[in-house]
Computed example of a mutant assay.
Amino acid sequence: MALHSDTEYKSFSGDAFDFAQFYFETKTEDELLNKINDALHLNLSVEEEDELSWLDEPDNTWYTDCSFFKAPVRNVFPSKTLRLGKIHQLIVSDKYKAITEELRAIEDSKEKRKFKANRFDYVTFSGVFERRNDKFLQKHSNLITLDFDHLQDIEKVRQQLLDDEYFETEMLFISPSGNGLKWIVRIELGEFTHQENFLAITNYIKHTYNLEVDASGKDVSRACFLPHDANAYLHKRHRLL
């Protein structure tokens, strides 16, 4: 942009907009642009909305914060806070592939439980905790875990849950043992507690699909081990950019 200085009129120097502001005697940029718009008959529309008005709006985004714990399960202090997208990323990656295969190769049920408790990292899907205990819940995630064990046809049940007309699946993956499913759904808190939501959903599942749900899901601080499942489902709202 060309710059101008006047040898005779020392009080002005600058570019075309500086000259326009001097000529129109305007105080603000918006006022100057409106004057130019009128003087040159540009007929440009003026946006009245403040471009930064969104900064004053409340953030109503639903964040799914969960606590992540390093193995073994007796470690009750979380190492970080993760959202569903990151947890899903861990499950579908190869991070837990070797130990998942090793667990599924163990035939003795007692040894399996011991191996899982000692070797698998885990999360508390229902919220963020100072330590893993219902009393130390810092923030509920509005998520609840439904655990289905010893399924005869995993793929059939998986599709039934994904197609359910009342509950939208947030995450769904095969359990570490390989013969069960972990179904993560959203619940509303306020009128009903976590435990009341769990009871209602388990009754619905029993009535609709004749499936039993592991009762441990009623605990807000319930630990969920993270296995490998390359085909784990994640709702698109949680996918990482």
Rank of each mutant, 00 (worst) to 15 (best):
E29P: 14
S216K: 11
Q138I: 01
R158F: 03
S177Q: 14
I87T: 11
H4N: 06
Q21R: 11
N118L: 00
T124G: 03
S13I: 01
A223N: 04
C224V: 06
D134S: 11
F115D: 00
K135P: 00
S45W: 08
T145N: 15
I91K: 09
L199K: 12
G217C: 09
E212R: 11
E25N: 09
S141D: 09
F12T: 02
D56N: 05
H194K: 06
G190M: 14
L52E: 12
E170N: 14
N118Y: 00
G190S: 13
E165N: 14
Q152P: 03
T81Y: 02
F69Q: 15
F198M: 02
Y9A: 02
H41G: 10
K114C: 05
Q21P: 01
S45T: 13
A200H: 06
I36K: 10
F69Y: 10
Y204S: 12
K95T: 09
F12E: 05
Y122R: 02
D65A: 07
T100K: 05
R83W: 02
R186T: 05
L211E: 06
E196A: 09
E57Y: 10
I99Y: 00
F69N: 11
A105S: 13
E101P: 03
A117L: 04
T169D: 14
T124H: 02
S109P: 15
T169I: 10
S13H: 08
D153F: 03
P58S: 09
E155M: 13
F68L: 04
E25F: 01
V128R: 08
S177E: 10
S93F: 12
Y233E: 15
T61W: 09
L211Y: 05
S5W: 06
N118M: 00
R119H: 01
E107I: 04
D121W: 00
E191K: 13
E31R: 13
N179K: 08
I187V: 10
H207L: 08
F19N: 05
E196N: 04
S126M: 14
T145V: 10
D15L: 02
I91N: 09
E8V: 02
H238I: 05
T26D: 04
D219P: 08
K35E: 11
V123E: 01
S93E: 12
Q195G: 03
K206Q: 09
H228I: 05
R222G: 09
D56P: 01
S79T: 10
F17Y: 11
E8A: 04
K97S: 00
Q159R: 15
A16E: 07
V76R: 15
D56L: 06
D38Q: 14
T28S: 15
D30G: 15
A215H: 06
A215K: 10
